[in-house]
Design a protein around this nucleic acid. Sequence first.
DNA 1: GCCATTACGTCACGGCATGCCGTCTGACGG
DNA 2: CCGTCAGACGGCATGCCGTGACGTAATGGC
Lengths: 222, 222
Amino acid sequence: MPSDGRRPYASRVSTEPPPPTLTERRKAATQLDIAHAAAELFATRGPEATTAEEIARRAGVALRTFYRYFRSKQDAVGPLLTVGADRWRALLAEAPPGSPLGPALRGAVEQALATPDPQAVEALLRTRGLLRAAADDPALRAVWYRVNQESEELLIPVIARLADGRRDPLEVRLVAAAATDAIRIALETWSGTEAATEGPDSPADLAVRCLRSLLGPGDDTP
Amino acid sequence: MPSDGRRPYASRVSTEPPPPTLTERRKAATQLDIAHAAAELFATRGPEATTAEEIARRAGVALRTFYRYFRSKQDAVGPLLTVGADRWRALLAEAPPGSPLGPALRGAVEQALATPDPQAVEALLRTRGLLRAAADDPALRAVWYRVNQESEELLIPVIARLADGRRDPLEVRLVAAAATDAIRIALETWSGTEAATEGPDSPADLAVRCLRSLLGPGDDTP
DNA sequence: GCCATTACGTCACGGCATGCCGTCTGACGG
DNA sequence: CCGTCAGACGGCATGCCGTGACGTAATGGC
């Protein structure tokens, strides 16, 4: 029972989330329960050997309920794989429009990945476990691809806002793709090692290096 | 995984294809039959409304045989989506090692896509049809993601050979990812339009522009 | 407190995907 | 030319996947 605790503050501007009701919070909790159950079973016995029924049982819901939350058993770990990208994108969206692209991207990724927050570290380690399980499971890899693809699409409007009309839509889309690739490859590379979550081979450092390599310094010479 | 059946030929330089036997040719033909049957059904009534049984029947094989060739009904169109990338990669592999990356990539893609070969045009139009069907079918999109991912991985050794030790492995991988993205986004963009297979909005021109935008002129300043 | 809404469980069912076995055909050495 | 054998294919059976339909209980607005 995560006590999220976000409360309605009188002065709230338009785009802020409306206060989540009890039902909504329970739904979110149920979704996370299922996701965690799936991740644990996948990481231990592998997705192939895990049935949707088992995931549902471990999460304490009926099979039918499982399929109300997810289209397939592999999809169940999706929320756990997206949290990192969501965090990064949210940080990036806070940068002022028109700021230079490269530094903004790298700054956001550093904040998102190099955090001492124990919950974020936990998420990072879970991601590594899933990526390793995905190494020999095509269906799980497919989820990873899909998640990255969706991240790329969600990144487009954010990049467009930062570029502020200085780049045409096609270019924006390419930058979004490249940035997503940089993060993806950094995480994949890190998952293949025994490196810790901090230090020179940490995901944050890797990601920053990847971003710089693909997009250059990126202090916005149009 | 077919057991290749490589026959001993006295004078054989390593990389030449062994002469395909009748059985092998028939297998390849059957695979293409199934792929074409699937592509046609997917393009008309959509993947969701198409059963594996129907694909098999239209291809003239038993359902069991279908699943000997493909792991799922969506996978059946895989071979049709890979031909373009295969062609491009093969052309790229012919470039001399050490040649500048950017021009090599753009030259290969131009040869692969701007060809007057009617068969290649046919393949392009088929790809467009499949991409449009994928627009509202997650499972088919997943195949597209997988194909691109595999293309990226197959591209890595080719790029490494071209870079000829002037770039470290991580960098090579990033370049492979970016190049794959450029082609992918060019094709996706083109598929969303009514543009012809040649002209200023042709896939070839789009791809070249995307490559230049992401990788710069690429005349190899290390 | 009363009712519309909605999240959840139970049942049933068609399609997906694979293991097993029998048949037949093409490949290959004698 | 022929016998042997690998393997390509079809048919059958089966377990899991994913969804529609319907009933129930809890929730949130009036």
